[in-house]
């Protein structure tokens, strides 16, 4: 075999083997990854709706809501996903909302690509806990009613904006004081 044919054959073998290895790895890993994603979703719902042990999924006006229930079947609130524009890309979060009280019950950042050590601090409880018990009619303006992080102003603003935009829709579907 001359050297050019050999080059092509070797590259071809490498590419095919790599494709096979990747396909098999994907097949093996993807059910586990999805299972993990489901677990993470459940954990985040329980986190933003304290006291919840199970949840029901409801689709309404193009949005997905997770209604949290405790062991006795009492409704503990509604969790929904919100997206804000951060510094490094979209920030996805799970927000807990209690329509009876008109208050947020919790916030968890699901995914983000903010600067480690700066904007990434939005996922720490020191930042997210300030939204617990916050009234949904608040203005959600950074530096006014939302604490920011030193060195990162865009990331907290993205979170606050994302929640506000989602709440505008959600409070129309599930008004404060109304039934759900």
């Amino acid at each position: 075999m001359n050297q050019y044919a050999r080059m092509i054959v070797v590259l071809l073998i490498f590419s095919v083997l790599s494709g096979v290895v990747l396909a098999f790895s994907y097949e093996i890993a993807i059910p586990k990854i999805q299972e993990q994603a489901q677990k993470d979703l459940e954990a985040s719902i329980k986190n933003v709706l304290p006291g919840t042990t199970r949840y029901e999924q409801v689709e309404k006006e193009g949005m997905t809501f997770y209604i949290g229930l405790d062991d006795q079947g009492n409704k503990k609130g509604i969790a929904f996903k919100a997206t804000g524009q951060g510094f490094g890309g979209p920030i996805e979060m799970m927000v807990g909302y209690d329509p009876k009280e008109g208050k947020l019950t919790g916030l968890q950042i699901l995914s983000m690509a903010e600067t480690p050590g700066l904007g990434a601090k939005i996922q720490e409880p020191a930042f997210t806990d300030q939204f617990k018990g916050k009234s949904v009619t608040d203005p959600f303006v950074p530096k006014e009613d939302v604490k920011v992080i030193t060195g990162a102003t865009i990331s907290p603003a993205g979170v606050a904006n994302g929640i506000k935009i989602a709440l505008d829709k959600v409070t129309k579907i599930y008004p404060v004081g109304g039934d759900y």
């Binding site: 290895v21 990747l22 790895s25 093996i28 890993a29 993807i30 586990k32 990854i33």
Partner: peptide, 13 residues
């Protein structure tokens, strides 16, 4: 290939 395999398995397991 190696990095992608590590990425997939670490995410799953």
């Amino acid at each position: 290939t190696f990095v992608t395999v590590v990425d997939l398995f670490m995410a799953g397991y």
